[in-house]
């Protein structure tokens, strides 16, 4: 069960946890409602990562205050921040090469669009 913390740590940890949860929720909601694949890619890679980051900071604060310095959860945050751009990049590349449909508002400013496509070979 949760131990009781000093007031400032209690409020700070609560704020971090709630903010993280809200960001993750908004990110997942964006994954559900944005119109095409390339825009959907934006929501989870940024918001969910920061959401988990908030949870991790809150949990680090809780354990550090209640039972001695404990930083090892930061490893997960560092790992996520290093890997999120890579998986986003690979998925974006897949989306481009397979030529998924984009919504018609998209301003396509590529000079030679065919060099990014593998569709016909």
């Amino acid at each position: 069960m949760l131990q009781s913390l000093p007031t400032w740590a209690d409020y700070l940890a609560s704020a971090l946890v709630i903010m993280g949860a809200l960001f993750a929720l908004i990110g997942s909601f964006g994954l559900l409602r944005l119109p095409d694949f390339m825009t959907r890619l934006h929501a989870p890679t940024k918001n969910t990562t920061l959401g988990v980051g908030g949870i991790i900071l809150g949990s680090t604060l809780y354990f550090s205050v209640s039972s001695g310095l404990s930083l090892h959860e930061l490893l997960i945050a560092i790992f996520l921040f290093l890997t999120a751009p890579i998986s986003a990049h690979l998925l974006a590349k897949a989306g481009l090469h397979l030529e998924y449909k984009m919504i018609k508002e998209t301003q396509d400013l590529r000079k030679k669009p065919e060099q990014y496509s593998d569709k016909d070979d």
Binding site: I26, G27, F29, G30, R33, L34, P35, D36, M38, T39, A43, N47, M102, I103, E105, T106, Q107, D108, L109, R110, K111
Partner: peptide, 14 residues
């Protein structure tokens, strides 16, 4: 994400 979807204007550029 929280504003209506009509507003967004994506772009793809080099």
């Amino acid at each position: 994400i929280l504003t209506p979807r009509r507003k967004i204007k994506p772009a793809l550029f080099e």
